[in-house]
Design a protein around this nucleic acid. Structure first.
Lengths: 354, 354
DNA sequence: CTGAAAGCGCTTACAG
DNA sequence: CTGAAAGCGCTTACAG
C-alpha cells in the first residue's frame, strides 16, 4: 500500500528560499520578508506565499538562520541514562517547562557512550547552557565543567551533590532521611536495618548523615542503633537484593524493628522477604523506601517513602537556567537545596514490643 | 566558592575559526585543514593547533559546517510522552543503536505541546528521517506523514498500527494475546474477565482480535467466554482501576477463572482486589498483565505477562532507518510485525473447578 | 515590490 | 604553508 501523492504535490522538493522564491514567482527578498512577518507587504502577496508554503511544505533551513543570528535559546541536557523513573520524570518536566519559555532542549544520553563527544556536540551546536542529570563519574563531570567554563557556557548539575565548582540543584537527602528517621523514632523504633547503604556510587553518604544526625539529636548512637548486612550479597536487581537482605537479617537473629531501604525496589523486595518468612509489615517490621514511585501504592501494605519533589526541583532549575542564559559567566557557583517530602503510608507503624 | 580560572585560560572566548586562527597565529585555511585532518601538514603545525584547541576549547560551529555539507546523519524522534516505561526503553535503545551507526538523534516530546511545531523544527534541522513513537492522534500523525512525504523526508511509526501510508513497525499484539489465551485455555480456563479492554485510544482492538481468534480456533465464542465490566468505573490510575474492577467482578457473582488485564498495573491492582476479598491467585483466579515490566517480578505471586521485545523492535527500526536515510522516498510503505513473547510466571495456573 | 550586495562561520579548490 | 575567493542558505539594509 502506498501513500497517495495527488495533484497539489509538486514534483520538485524545495530546500532553499531561492528555489521557493522561484516556485512562488517572487523575489527571494520578498519571500524572506513574508516568512519573517515584516510590514509593508500586500495581503495578496502574503497569501500567495502562504499558499505556496502549504503546497510545498517549505521550512527555512535552521542552520542558515542560526548563522544570521536568528537562533532560539537552546539548552543541552546530558543524561547519564534514562532507565531510572525519577530521572525520566525530571527530564520530561525540564523539557516541557523550557519549551514553555521558548527554549529548545537537545537531549543526549551517555549510557555507555562517550560523554566528551556529547559535550563537544553541544558546544558545536552553540547551546546556551548544558545541564547534567544523573549519577556521573565526578572527575569526568568536573572536567567537562571546566571545559564549558573556559568556553563561556553556563552549566548546571542536577542531583549530583558535591562536584567542585558546579552550579548544583540538589535534593537534600540528609534532610529527607532525618524526617524519615524521626518518623520511625516517634513510633518507638530503636533498631534499624539499613538496606543497600554500602553502595558507594550513589549519594549514600548524605543519606546516612541524615539518619546519623536525627539519631544523635535524640541521643542515640548511629553505630549502636543501625545494622548493615550488605556485605553478604552481591548487588543484583534491586528487588531480589532487598528480598535477600531481609532473609539475611532474619537469619542473623538480630532482626531490627525497621528497615530503611535505599530505594523503593529494595524496600518492596524486603517486604516480600519478610512475608515469605511469616513476618508482617508493619506488625513485625516497618519498612521504608525512597523515591516515592508509583509502585509504592501497588504493594500491600503500601510503602512509606520519600518523594523527590521533581516539579520543585525542575522549577528551580528552569529559573536558574533562564537567569544565566545569554549572560556572561558568573564566577560564583550556586548550590540550591530541595527539601524532600516524607510520604507516610501503611508500611510503617509502631515498633513491636519485644 | 568559585571555580579557579588559572593561567592557561585565555581571556577571550573563541567562537569562530578566524578568531581561532588569529589565536594560533596561522591562516584560517591552515587551521581548517588541521581540523579536518587533511594531509600535507607539518607535525609541528598540527601540534600547535592541537594545543590551542586544548587551551581554548574551541569547537567549530555545527551550523556553518552543515551549510558546507559536512553534516552527520540525523533522525528526529517525536515522542508522545516519556511517562510509559516500555516507550522510554525503546527511546534509549534507539538512541544508543543509532549513535553506534554515527547517526545523531534529536528527541522531542509532544506531551501537551504542539506536534506540528516539532515536525517543523525537525524539518528546519533537515533531519534525514522522522520517527514517531507512542500513541498519537491518528489523523494528526497521518497529516504529519503527508507533510513529510511532500518534503521528501522518510518517516517511521513505531508501535502505532494502522495509520494509512505509514511505514510501521508494530508489536503483533493480536498474536501475543492469542498466545496468552491459549496458555489459559490449556490450563482449563473457559471464562475470562477482560480488564481495561473498553479503552479506545490504545491499540485494544488488535488485542481483542487475538483473544477472539484464539477462542474461535478452539471452538469457543468470544461473547460467551468473556466478560467486561469496565463501564462500571471511570478510568483512573491503572492500579486503582484494576483493584476496583476485581471488586466489581466479585460482586457481580459471576467471577471468571481468569483475568486478562490491559497492562501490568491493572493486573497488579486486580490481584490486590482479589486478595482483599480473600481470593487467591492463581488458586481462585489466574491473572495476566501486559508489557512485562520489572514490577511483574515484584508482586506475590509474580505476574504472567507479555513482553514487547524492545530490542528486536528497535533493531528492525534501525535497519529500516539506515536503509532509507539519504535515499529517495520509496512509494511503497512497509509494515513489519514483531512477535511478542509470552512470559509465564506464578499468577497463572489451572482453572479452579467449580 | 525587486535586485544586487554584504555577511554569518565554515571548507575547499586555486594560485602563490 | 598562506591568502584571496567562492559558495552553502539565509536576512537585512540599500537603491531602485
Amino acid at each position: 500500500m502506498s501513500s497517495s501523492n495527488s495533484k497539489t504535490t509538486p514534483a520538485k522538493i524545495i530546500r532553499s528560499t531561492s528555489e521557493f522564491a522561484a516556485y512562488v514567482g517572487l523575489a527571494r527578498t520578498t519571500v524572506s520578508r513574508v516568512l519573517n512577518g515584516q510590514p509593508g507587504l500586500k495581503k495578496k502577496t502574503i497569501d500567495r506565499v502562504q499558499r505556496a508554503i502549504e503546497e510545498t511544505g517549505f521550512v527555512p533551513n535552521a542552520y542558515a538562520l542560526h548563522l544570521k543570528g536568528k537562533r532560539p535559546a537552546t539548552v543541552g541536557v546530558c543524561m547519564q541514562n534514562i532507565a531510572f523513573p525519577p530521572l525520566v520524570q525530571k527530564l520530561a518536566s525540564l523539557h516541557r517547562k523550557l519549551r514553555e519559555r521558548d527554549v529548545t532542549t537537545f537531549i543526549e544520553i551517555v549510557e555507555g557512550g562517550d560523554s566528551t563527544s556529547i559535550i563537544r556536540h553541544f558546544l558545536s551546536l552553540r547551546v546556551d547552557a548544558v545541564v547534567f542529570m544523573g549519577y556521573f563519574d565526578e572527575d569526568r563531570v568536573a572536567q567537562h565543567l571546566r571545559g564549558l567554563s573556559t568556553n563561556g557556557t553556563p552549566s548546571l548539575v542536577i542531583d549530583h551533590f558535591g562536584i567542585k565548582g558546579a552550579n548544583t540543584i540538589y535534593l537534600d537527602r540528609a534532610r529527607g532521611m532525618a524526617a524519615l528517621t524521626n518518623h520511625l523514632l516517634d513510633h518507638g523504633h530503636r533498631r534499624f536495618g539499613l538496606l543497600g547503604y554500602s553502595e558507594t556510587f550513589r549519594s549514600t553518604f548524605e543519606r546516612e548523615r541524615g539518619i546519623r544526625e536525627a539519631l544523635a539529636a535524640r541521643g542515640f548512637s548511629f553505630e549502636e542503633s543501625t545494622m548493615n548486612l550488605d556485605h553478604k550479597h552481591d548487588r543484583g536487581r534491586d528487588f531480589e537484593y532487598g528480598r535477600a537482605l531481609a532473609h539475611s537479617f532474619i537469619e542473623s537473629k538480630r532482626l531490627p524493628t525497621a528497615f530503611i531501604a535505599l530505594n523503593d525496589e529494595i524496600a518492596i523486595g524486603a517486604m516480600h522477604g519478610l512475608k515469605e518468612r511469616g513476618l508482617g509489615v508493619p506488625g513485625d517490621v516497618s519498612v521504608t523506601g525512597f523515591n516515592n514511585q508509583d509502585i509504592c501504592l501497588m504493594t500491600a501494605p503500601s510503602l512509606t517513602s520519600v518523594d523527590q519533589r521533581v516539579d520543585a526541583t525542575i522549577d528551580v532549575a528552569v529559573d536558574h537556567l533562564l537567569e544565566h542564559i545569554g549572560q556572561p559567566l558568573r564566577q560564583r557557583t550556586s548550590v540550591r537545596m530541595i527539601e524532600p517530602l516524607l510520604v507516610v503510608r501503611e508500611s510503617t507503624g509502631p515498633a513491636r514490643l519485644k
